[in-house]
């Protein structure tokens, strides 16, 4: 019945009981892997986007003259940068989760309006966003005052100077650091396991809890998936960096 591919892994398991690649011959386990992979991808993409938006917004808020605004942003950065993301996830889901409103689809169940996936997205986006604020701020500060003066003396408004001169340059300066932080973010999504988000690590742990002989195979799959996933991200970011490269500018 089974294809030769599945048969191979079944045979392998029979001859080597420590190498049970169960997800290659048991369709139910394969589905769990795919679901985990999909959730991980979804979580990664959404968090990358939100964290970049938070980073840009925070860096912009920090250029405002209002001291209170800048202090709030500073406080946010200190909190999220100086505490472990695992604790942040637990805090958001278990502590703040208690206070979020619920709704009831059938008059019996009470479902919180923010799911565990929702909390993972919020928590991880703010975590990576805090670093992104600092990354973009450093990029903006790297643009010399004299370049801004040149555009000012050509009659550019403050907004035009930012839009056409400062931000395009600051973004290029920020890209390598942003690259690192996003890699970190993708890897940190595995910690959403602690609030039962069905991402890849969660699924793999579930599989080897059910079938303890599959542990080695599950670990192997995790490493391979993350090497490929982060590899794609880094490849894309580096191509983007090269595309944005200006001849004779920077390195």
């Amino acid at each position: 019945m089974l294809g030769s591919f599945s048969q191979f892994f079944l045979d392998l398991y029979e001859s080597n009981p420590k190498w049970n690649f169960i997800y290659f011959y048991d369709p139910k386990q394969a589905d769990r892997v795919l679901e985990g992979l999909w959730t991980t991808l979804e979580l990664s993409v959404v968090c990358v986007i939100f964290s970049v938006v938070i980073g840009v917004a925070g860096a912009w808020l920090q250029t405002l003259p209002n001291r209170l605004v800048r202090m709030v942003v500073q406080g946010y950065i200190q909190f999220f940068r100086n505490t472990p993301p695992l604790i942040q996830l637990m805090f958001f889901y278990f502590a703040l989760g208690q206070f979020t409103p619920t709704y009831s689809p059938d008059g019996w169940l009470e479902i919180p309006i923010i799911s565990n996936v929702g909390w993972a997205i919020i928590s991880l986006s703010f975590f990576a966003g805090a670093f992104n604020v600092e990354i973009f701020r450093a990029g903006i500060e790297a643009i010399p005052e004299s370049t801004k003066e040149a555009s000012e003396s050509l009659g550019f408004s403050r907004l035009q100077t930012y839009r056409y001169i400062v931000l395009p340059l600051a973004f290029r300066v920020s890209l390598p650091a942003l690259n690192n932080n996003l890699v970190n973010l993708v890897k940190t999504t595995t910690q959403a396991l602690v609030i039962a988000v069905p991402e890849l690590l969660y699924q793999m742990v579930s599989i080897y809890n059910d079938y303890s002989t599959s542990m080695n195979a599950c670990m192997l799959l995790l490493f391979v998936v993350y090497i490929v996933l982060v590899g794609i991200l880094v490849f894309g970011m580096q191509r983007w960096e090269r595309a944005m490269n200006i001849p004779g500018y920077g390195s």
Binding site: S146, T147, E149, A150, Y164, I165, L169, R172, I246, Y249
Partner: peptide, 11 residues
């Protein structure tokens, strides 16, 4: 105005 350090837009 022309500056000592040129201050061209490098991009």
């Amino acid at each position: 105005m022309v500056f000592q350090q040129f201050n061209l837009f490098p991009h």
